[in-house]
Each structure stands twice: as C-alpha cells, then as structure tokens.
Simulated scan of single mutants.
Amino acid sequence: MKKFTPVLAIGLISALTGCDSKQSISESAAVSETTQTQSETLEYRDAFDAWKQSQNPQTLLAYEDYFKAHFKQPPSLYVLTVNTHPFEQDCEQYRFALPPKQMWHNLLPALQLVEQLQQQGIFAEYKIVSVYRSPEANHCARGAKASKHLNNYAVDFKPLDESLQPYADDAAMDQKLCAFLHKHGQKLHLGLGLYGKQRYHIDRQGYRTWGVGYGSATSPCLKK
C-alpha cells in the first residue's frame, strides 16, 4: 500500500474547502497537541502502565516515533492503543492493543481527517474512543465482524466543545458531519458511522454511512 503523507490529505481537503494549505499544516500541529493533552487525563492510566510492562519497550518506542515522523505533535501512545468502550470485567485484559507493524501506516488517513474536521470548525475539540482493536477487543466492544479497526484503518471519537464537554444538541452534530459526508465523502472515500450520543466512526476505506446496528438504513445521513 502506498505510504500516506498527512500533507497530501491537507492539500486535498484544502482544495475542496478553499482553505490555505500552509495554514492547515500549522493548525494541524496545534490540534494534535490538544488531543494528546486530553488523552493523558483518561481513566485507564494504571491499566496502561501495567500493559506497557508486558510489551517490548523498543516496539512501543518505534510506534510512537512512527507518528512523530508524520505529526509535529503526535497523539500519545495511550491514545493510539486504548479502547475506551465499556468492557465487561473479563475483557479488561484487552483494553490496550498494539497493531502489527505492517498496519501502522493504515491509521494516518483517518486520523488526519478527524483533525481536519476540527480545523474547519465542525467541532472545537475531540476525544478519541478507539483506533486499532485486536480481534479480542473488537469482540468485547461488540464491533462489526469486518470492522476497519481490526486493520487499524479507523478512528472512533466524540466531539467536544471549547470546555471539553459534549455538545448539547446531538442532532445538530449529526447534521454537520452528514453535510460533510454528502459534500466530500465520495472524493475522500469516507466511511462515517453514527452510533448515537455523539459517538462517531471515521475511516477512508470506501464511501458509505451507517448507524446503530451497522446498517445503512439507520444512518441519520440517509434519513429525509
């Protein structure tokens, strides 16, 4: 697969929206820094520290360094490996997962696009819910059997306002993201999942949308 460069995504979105690409590049660094700061306040710190002890430290460092090569302020290792979906107690051992090296580059297009949505003002901040999932974690999260998370192609996230709180109007946020999908989704090969309560999925593995239950019929973007 051709290696993805975030600058290419910035240029593509800029061409579609009329934004200046140089401005987008500088803004992208600030966005990544904000996302990383949010992630460090999450609730699974002790589990994360314990999980790291079971991993090869050189591999963890290499994964962090990979994203440092693509982002001026990259997401933290915590953000890149955590799944914050509700898990049963016997699933907690799968809370964190590191993708195989051949999948590392798969995440870049989706992650860059989430940041671009923020830069365009669709939401002020955001919290990443999950990216890569091991098969065990995907089962625990009740993900789709062919979930794009299994190959590190997808980002699940929640938009936040300037105070790092959820927006008051769920339907309004759905409408903003659906409008972006209808305008740019086909060119960007955008997959948009809307799961309710302002939890969203983004990947760039094909133009499509779905809602609760993973069916297109439940997507707010297709309802008149």
Rank of each mutant, 00 (worst) to 15 (best):
A29N: 14
Q102I: 14
A50G: 13
L12M: 14
Y94D: 01
G193L: 04
G211Y: 09
T17S: 05
K52F: 00
K72C: 04
S134M: 00
A69N: 05
Y195K: 11
L12V: 13
A97I: 03
L111G: 03
Q23W: 03
D170M: 14
A137P: 01
V129C: 06
R95D: 01
Q73R: 12
T81M: 06
A50L: 05
F180T: 08
L177D: 06
M103R: 06
D203F: 05
K22P: 01
W51R: 05
N151H: 15
L192F: 04
D46Y: 10
M103H: 14
K197W: 08
G211I: 08
Q73W: 10
L77C: 06
F180Q: 12
N151V: 11
Y200Q: 15
Q120W: 05
E27P: 12
Q198A: 06
V129Y: 08
P86R: 12
K224L: 02
A15H: 05
T41R: 15
I202F: 08
A9L: 15
V114F: 01
T209W: 05
I25K: 13
Q186D: 15
Q93G: 12
K145A: 12
W51V: 10
D49Q: 15
H105E: 03
T37E: 04
H105C: 00
T37V: 15
T218W: 05
P6S: 06
S39L: 02
A179C: 07
P135Y: 11
V31H: 04
L194Q: 13
L113D: 07
S39I: 03
Y78M: 14
T37I: 14
K3Q: 04
T209P: 03
I122V: 11
R208W: 04
P57L: 00
H182R: 13
K145D: 01
V212T: 12
E136T: 07
L222V: 07
L192E: 02
A110M: 12
L190A: 07
W210E: 12
W210R: 12
E115M: 15
Y66P: 00
I25E: 09
P220K: 03
Q165D: 09
Y66D: 00
K22Q: 04
A110H: 10
K224G: 04
T35Y: 02
Q89H: 11
L194K: 10
S24M: 08
V82H: 02
L113Q: 02
P166H: 07
Q38K: 14
P135L: 07
E125R: 15
K2Y: 13
S147I: 07
A30D: 03
H85M: 08
L8P: 02
V114C: 03
